[in-house]
């Protein structure tokens, strides 16, 4: 049975400002859904609510019919919801393995000593498996290219195989070649049955990879289209109309 993530009447206010109003949607495994919309439409807010980084003012989130309460990322991570932030949330002075295992370090239960070698070996295996090539694992991630950093942020989300992968603007800062690398990783994960939801401004990337495109406008869902049945002009029309 494939996984499902259900949003019921999600609203979020910032003071008097209603950023999200009664958003309801269902996402299923093995599909990539893109959230598009103008600036301030509420895309990132919705993504952060799903990740547990923000609490909704009202409404519920259910993963496979289990309601997810709690308002911190740790709680959501523990239930298999991972998010890749737009600024990547990497510790840039730390090397690759330290970032991959951040918050999930493996340590000896008796002495508390970190098992650095084991974490490094697992990192290599993870990168190999996801097709990410990083020649210098011991460099601080701040010294790597934008595409490599993006790949590390995604790899971190995949360390413990998640059910839901959320991505905020995963291709915005990347060169064309790096975009292909990131999209390939996402396709590969779709095959594994993950629920993938991404927010993006880059409509060409969205059309290239997504199965569904949801347009948000003024905090509400404006339209939900199948990517196969639509085109760039229609989506642009949805966003600006």
């Amino acid at each position: 049975m494939s996984n499902s993530l259900t949003l019921e009447n999600i609203s979020r206010n910032f003071g008097a400002l209603k950023v999200l109003q009664d958003v309801a949607a269902q996402f299923t495994g093995g599909k990539i859904t893109a959230l598009v919309g103008d600036n301030g439409a509420g895309k990132s807010t919705l993504l952060k609510i799903m990740a547990g980084a923000l609490a909704p003012t009202s409404g519920t989130i259910k993963l496979n019919d289990e309601e997810i309460a709690g308002l911190n990322p740790a709680h959501h991570r523990a239930r298999g919801i991972e998010m890749v932030y737009q600024d990547l949330a990497l510790a840039k002075q730390h090397h690759v393995a330290a970032n991959i295992f951040l918050g999930r370090e493996i340590a000896c239960p008796l002495t508390g000593l970190l098992k650095t070698k084991e974490m490094r070996a697992q990192t290599e295996a993870l990168l190999e498996q996801t097709g990410i090539k990083i020649p210098q694992l011991d460099r601080p991630v701040g010294a790597l290219s934008g595409g490599q950093q993006q790949a590390i942020a995604i790899a971190r989300a995949l360390l413990v195989p998640p059910k839901v992968l959320l991505l905020d603007e995963p291709t915005a800062a990347l060169a064309a070649k790096e975009v292909d690398m990131v999209l390939d990783i996402l396709r590969q994960q779709r095959e594994k049955g993950l629920i993938i939801i991404l927010v993006s401004h880059r409509l060409n990337d969205v059309l290239a990879i997504s199965d569904n495109i949801i347009t948000l406008k003024h905090g509400r869902i404006f339209n939900d289209r199948k990517t196969a049945d639509t085109n760039l002009a229609e989506i642009v029309q949805d966003i600006v109309s």
Partner: peptide
Amino acid sequence: TRFGRHILAFGDSAMAAHATG
């Protein structure tokens, strides 16, 4: 230790520490 690693990561990026739970 994990504690030390978390301190250093927090000093590096408070956002990264928060986001990773």
